[in-house]
Design a protein around this nucleic acid. Structure first.
Lengths: 199, 199
DNA sequence: TTTGTCTCTTGATCTGGATCAAGAAATCAT
DNA sequence: ATGATTTCTTGATCCAGATCAAGAGACAAA
């Protein structure tokens, strides 16, 4: 950890407060000391498909792509995470099953990472941890619920609009082909939709 | 509760064992006495969009449709639950937000229902409850993860096949129009796909 | 059983978005 | 900077699946 360890720790604690509603300073300290600062260069893998997922990483900066490869060899981008989200295959991390996703840094990335052993000890350190974890998981669930609904009820253009309104910045930082895949359309279609939006 | 209360309780306990891996008989009894037996007639609402979701129901028998109405007035079927699943708007139940889904019985339905107050007491009754709950939630998450992926990587026909392999029985019990909506296609398309499969 | 109301199927047509192809921009490595 | 590689755009064409329309079954109520 570099010279601005204190700064980033303070930032991590801020995020934990915002995200989980933890405000007690003892609990905060307990949480944040179990997370280790870590960086990834562009292109580096944070997790590889098939491996077990033994770490949960809080994203401090950068963009990370979650993707899998289909039987026909097509790459499908399931999600792109960024600042203040978690880079983890949640299912694999919790259940111990092999990871479904590759997680690759699309830009230089700063993470706060906790391993599974320490993660499982969080409830000792933080009395209300189970409650925070439940809220965390239900938010993840809700994001997917929204995404399923968007595929049942919206056109490609509407899905684009919806996501663009939610996160404009990402379109300047991440190759559009990945965003297209994540939105369930081809790069050509996304390009045409974006052109149309300019008029 | 009717004459076969004991029978159904035993069944509930069996499901809890299968689903959560709870095997201790004290814990099992603790859980199952907090759930109340309840029936719904066909067409009856178990939950209505916009209301708060104060109950979590384990489905003992029957089929239930989760749906919402879009701004344009279209009904979107998000999910159809059945035996040994849960009929609940999970996000609303956990966070206290207004329900997003209508849940309507498609057939006569038997439920074991627990209210939020009792649910929040489960961790007192069952020491490992937090762990079981976590597994429960991650499975819900995983189902949605699969569904999002299916929309990013499969054709309508592949989605049908995938779901049909997972649950053939439901196609004999539930109006096809709802299954079509849930799979993200029109009733006409589903009808044609099914015809094609017969050849 | 009959009547009315849903639900499903089938055909005809249309269209959103995919695919294929090729050039233009942007980004990267040396 | 310069060439190589990757990414993005644009056009032409195609097709999966939507829409529209009309019968055919299925189911429910009296």
């Amino acid at each position: 950890m570099g010279k601005d360890c204190r700064l980033t720790m303070a930032e991590l604690e801020k995020y934990i407060t915002d995200y989980f509603g933890v405000t007690e300073s003892n609990a905060l300290e307990g949480i944040s000391t179990l997370f280790k600062y870590q960086t990834c260069e562009k292109g580096e893998f944070i997790l590889e498909q098939g491996n077990s997922c033994n770490n949960l990483s809080f994203v401090f900066s950068g963009y990370q792509r979650f993707y899998a490869i289909t039987e026909e060899g097509k790459e499908i981008t399931q999600w792109i995470s960024h600042e203040s989200e978690f880079a983890v295959d949640l299912t694999a991390f919790i259940t111990g099953s092999p990871s479904r996703w590759n997680i690759q840094a699309l830009t230089k990335t700063e993470l706060f990472t906790i391993n599974k052993k320490d993660y499982d000890r969080l409830s000792e350190v933080v009395p209300d941890w189970a409650q925070f974890e439940k809220l965390f998981m239900v938010r993840c669930f809700n994001v997917l619920e929204n995404r399923v609904f968007s595929h049942l009820s919206m056109t490609a253009e509407e899905r684009y609009q919806f996501f663009f309104n939610y996160n404009k910045e990402i379109f300047n930082q991440v190759p559009l082909q990945y965003l297209a895949s994540m939105l369930g359309m081809t790069p050509e279609t996304l390009s045409r939709i974006r052109k149309k939006q300019l008029e």
